[in-house]
Design a protein around this nucleic acid. Structure first.
Lengths: 216, 216
DNA sequence: GTCTATATGCGGATAGAC
DNA sequence: GTCTATCCGCATATAGAC
């Protein structure tokens, strides 16, 4: 079934470039050189196409994340290194889609784009995503016993945000850099940044009292 | 001119909730109880409406950011504290729009949403935004002489990402927290997270430092 | 399974009366 | 400045021939 695959590939690229709402079935079927009606025949609707597309890419990514985390837990037990947990979370989307290959870059933009779509679309995505994030939130908490739970939850959100945003604008940011970086370099920087952010001690005294943010 | 203001207010809310493409002029004029043709009369086009809307909110935010940075430079000179630079960058969008008021929350979502719109829309936004980000990138570099320029550029992008993502999904994240946080608490956490991420030493085994959050 | 043709509705934009 | 009416194109989806 070549048609179905072709539709998925083209749709993925167009959704990544222009977003879901902005991409029409005409755009997709046109570029894929298949008939306009074939999307509805094969998938049922535009929404169902998106779901199929997300499943195809994200299920393996999240499976890989959990697998890496399991390995860490098995080998390190309670003394897991925070940076390794961050790496287990961040690296699969970067690595599972073949570094700098064209479709790899497409996938990265798609990740970023999806994180920003309208709430109903994002809801479908969250269902796929939330169990994984929960596992990691718990692992972070475990590695950071001195940081309280709410704080860990927020920092996890910050981490996801820096990841999503970076993936989406990866290409445009390059202009500010002196050389065109490999994705793996960006990934390393992101891991570094995220690890430091997660591990920062809760509230430095000067800040807490100077402003309103005191907690207890 | 009440009509023009009403259109701007409603458009801002709808763009924030559903995105630009997904919001029709009919949605806007319907909710604002003004005539469909009035958008084109007052603004010329849907695009021009968006531009007007962005200018209204972001010009003051960026002016405030620069103002805070100027003050820092004037009082601290070369010994500026990194965290204070981060604060100068992050706090204006949170504070200038009245904390937890309804329109404050709308504005926060708008910020996040805009960062994720299709490239042409985002391009208009970048024009408004890039000069400010450049100033701050330079300030970060100055405060972090031991980190190389590319790295600083990437970390700045990570910071913007965590900010944008947080603003957009602020409301939904709350479910994971034990209590409903004030925006200023989230802001403090974000500043903390960003400062630590920016300040992390370039590439290291980093195990030790990551744990303690130590800078140097 | 794949095509053409079409149903049906919403999109932005405008002309012209008041 | 604000209204109604309308243009015209594109959207998703489906019916029915091949």
């Amino acid at each position: 079934m070549e048609t179905k695959e072709r539709i998925l590939d083209v749709a993925e690229r167009l959704f990544a470039d222009f977003g879901y709402k902005a991409t029409s079935l005409r755009d997709i079927t046109g570029e894929a050189s298949v008939n306009l009606a074939s999307v509805n025949y094969h998938f049922g609707s535009k929404d169902a196409l998106l779901t199929a597309l997300l499943e195809r890419r994200f299920a393996p990514v999240n499976r890989r994340r959990i697998e890496l985390l399991d390995k860490l837990e098995a080998s390190a037990g309670d003394t897991m290194d925070l940076q390794e947990i961050v790496r287990a979370f961040l690296s699969p989307p970067f690595e599972l889609h073949s570094g700098n290959a064209a479709n790899g870059r497409t996938f990265l933009r798609l990740v970023g784009r999806i994180h920003a779509e309208t709430d109903d679309i994002r809801a479908a995505f969250s269902t796929l995503f939330e169990p994984t994030v929960s596992r990691f939130r718990a692992a972070f908490q475990n590695a950071l016993p001195h940081v309280d739970a709410d704080e860990v939850a927020w920092r996890t959100a910050f981490l996801v945000g820096s990841m999503a945003h970076t993936m989406m604008w990866c290409e445009s940011f390059v202009s500010h850099a002196a050389h065109r970086p490999d994705h793996s370099e960006v990934l390393e920087s992101l891991i570094q940044f995220g690890t430091a952010g997660l591990a920062t001690p809760s509230r430095q005294p000067a800040v807490v009292h100077a402003r309103t943010g005191e907690r207890r």
